[in-house]
Simulated scan of single mutants.
Amino acid sequence: MWKLVLLALALLAVAVVAAAYWSYRQASSAAEQAFVAIGSHAQTEPDAYDPSMVADLPEVAQRYFSHAIEIGTPLHTTVQLQMQGQFLLGSPQDHQTYAMTARQILAPPSEFVWIPTLRSGLIRITGSDALVEGEGWTRFWINSLVPVVNEYASADLNRSALTRAAMEAIWAPASLLPSNGVEWSQTGVNSARVTFPTGIEPIDMTLGPNGAVTEIFSMRWSNENAQKSFRLQPFGGTVEAEARFAGFTIPSRVKMGNHYGTEDYLPFFQAEVTDAKFQ
């Protein structure tokens, strides 16, 4: 009798593992399809950049575009990124560091798919974070079997994801042009506020004298707090290096996180962009 019980338990375990893996594979396939779909919507023959396009903007915005976009560069607003770095999970006092590699397609200010691999020892976390056609998701598994986050579209998640898409527009500078409905205001000698047509909270940037982004900040709708309650809270970080790709100069090394500027700040996203292909 006990042999039959053991056999039944073994079959049940196999079924559970198979179901978990099947769920992971379905989610991975959906992310790949969304990745391709965003790329297929990209404009194939955009206009070329001319400083006259930003002549009516505040000085700080003109400075940014003069630095970020070379004259004559085709104004592609979608970009595929390859990145590496570290991802920190936990609190500032107690967190685990994972080696990160990732690829992303980004069409600011409203769409992205981020597909990372996080590794620490024998643990491998994979999945995707996305906002596609107004619907967001965050879905990750340990070793392709154990779900650690499995969130589908909701008003809260979509709102949070829109802030991410807007903040990451610094990786697709052409998306920040006024012709795309973006509004710029100068808030200081070296600072600007950028407002997007999506209606999401504005983004604040600090620029260097040459127009390079050095800091970025927004109030983001998030439940990354002790109460696990969605609310507006500071999110941001610093730019530590930049690189030029196909006529665009973009931040290439960043540190970003929740509760920016407070004692609870943890720069959980520490990424270096190793390649950027604009389309």
Rank of each mutant, 00 (worst) to 15 (best):
P202Y: 08
G188E: 07
V213I: 14
G188I: 02
P202V: 06
G211S: 14
M205T: 10
E151N: 13
S154P: 04
I200H: 06
T214V: 09
V148L: 06
N158W: 06
E215P: 00
A192F: 05
F196L: 09
W171S: 02
A169M: 14
G211Y: 12
T163H: 01
N150M: 05
S144A: 08
G181P: 03
G188P: 08
W141N: 02
M205L: 15
W137K: 12
P147N: 03
E168W: 05
N180L: 04
D156K: 12
D156C: 13
F217C: 00
L176R: 14
W184L: 10
Q227F: 04
Q227A: 15
W171H: 15
D156S: 15
I203F: 02
P173A: 11
G188H: 05
F196A: 05
W184A: 11
L176M: 15
P197T: 09
G181D: 10
L176V: 14
P147S: 05
N158H: 10
S191M: 04
M219Q: 11
A165V: 12
E224A: 13
G199V: 09
L157G: 06
F196G: 01
T195C: 04
N210R: 15
E215G: 00
G136W: 00
S185A: 11
V189C: 04
A172Y: 10
I142H: 02
V146R: 03
W137T: 07
T195P: 04
S160L: 07
G211W: 11
L157H: 08
M167C: 09
I203L: 12
S185V: 14
V146P: 03
V149N: 10
S175Y: 10
D156I: 14
E215L: 00
T138H: 03
V189A: 12
F140V: 04
A155Y: 07
P178H: 14
L176H: 14
T214R: 09
A166C: 15
M167K: 02
L177P: 04
